[in-house]
Nucleic acid binder design. Structure first.
Length: 112
DNA sequence: GTCTTGACTAAGC
DNA sequence: GGCTTAGCCAAGA
């Protein structure tokens, strides 16, 4: 495992604000990892328990979660998101409303 | 060295 | 809206 890449993934995920979400591909690109979306999934899967990385804010490009619906992990992730005010439309998060846009975020917060 | 497996994605039907 | 297919790329076996 490339420790440096793993750390970059953590950094990016930690930068996702409460109540917002990003796709695996988004995190990969933002971390400078190109198209390695699946690698992001691997990193999150290996995350130690009790980590401060908000892994639940990372989901698939279509807004569905990375787990089979109804599984324990799926329920846990959904509960965490709902607790943050993230709205669901069936089995998917409303990406249009909650998708994290790092560049926009920088524009809105950076120059204030 | 190859083959399989993923918390993936975009495109096509 | 859904399902399938083909591409993707790092890890492990």
């Amino acid at each position: 495992v490339k420790q440096a890449d793993e750390a970059r993934v953590w950094r990016v995920v930690q930068a996702i604000p409460r109540g917002r979400v990003a796709s695996y591909g988004d995190v990969a690109r933002e971390a400078g990892l190109g198209r390695r979306a699946r690698f992001v999934g691997q990193v999150l899967a290996r995350l130690p328990p009790g980590s401060d990385v908000p892994w639940h804010r990372v989901l698939r490009a279509d807004g569905s979660l990375g787990f089979p619906p109804g599984s324990a992990s799926w329920e846990r992730q959904r509960a965490l998101l709902v607790a943050e005010g993230v709205a669901f439309r069936g089995l998917r998060v409303e990406l249009a409303r909650h998708r994290w846009r790092p560049s926009l975020d920088a524009l809105l917060w950076g120059h204030c």
